[in-house]
Design a protein around this nucleic acid. Structure first.
Lengths: 93, 93
DNA sequence: ATATCATATCAAGTATTTTGGATTTGAGGT
DNA sequence: ACCTCAAATCCAAAATACTTGATATGATAT
């Protein structure tokens, strides 16, 4: 899931999506990347749950997914929070 | 910074650190990885600000860094939060 | 049904990251 | 000073991720 945030292009895509729903053509134009490249990154973003896609007519619209974002936040928080049971298993002293 | 969370080994290191400060020898043993490999990952974790290190005697002790963790959380939150000014720049319709 | 257009997939190349043995560095102890 | 041991660095190999043109898929429209 965190892989979604580990690429410059994907961060820029998220940055663009922060201002609202965008269709693929806008992203391709603004990021100046070939269509296959955008598709590759959108797949990673969608599969990680961070972004939602919505087909409408010929195009696909992308938005940041609140649910997926919440899960990422929760996961990160958990990873960084010390466990309550701090049994100091010291060694090497 | 998010690269810190994009490797299985590093996630396992964080998992171990959640139960409190650990010295390198414990991590090497528990994760069954060569010393050079641990050192490589600890460098990434420390440079990203997620983990703090503290030398004591011959050993180095590692802990999850509250400050760095907070920054990561804040950054992630910002990335995933829609901008207030939702000027719907629709196209392609 | 055929043509068209947007997206997905493929494949082959390039770039980046990770691995782990060997060596170096650096602090501690004698 | 010298020895010892832990951590950092080096380096080459392996693994993983990204790029991109070409092709396939799938939906829409005529």
């Amino acid at each position: 899931m965190f892989k979604a945030f580990c690429d410059e292009k994907r961060l820029r895509i998220l940055e663009l999506l922060r201002s609202g729903e965008k269709c693929a053509c806008v992203l391709i134009e603004q990021l100046d990347m070939p269509q296959s490249s955008l598709s590759y990154h959108m797949k990673i973003l969608c599969e990680s749950g961070i972004v939602d896609s919505r087909p409408e007519g010929k195009w696909i619209y992308y938005t940041i997914c609140e649910k997926g974002g919440g899960e990422a936040m929760a996961l990160l928080k958990e990873l960084l929070t010390l466990e309550a049971i701090t049994e100091e298993s010291n060694c090497c002293l």
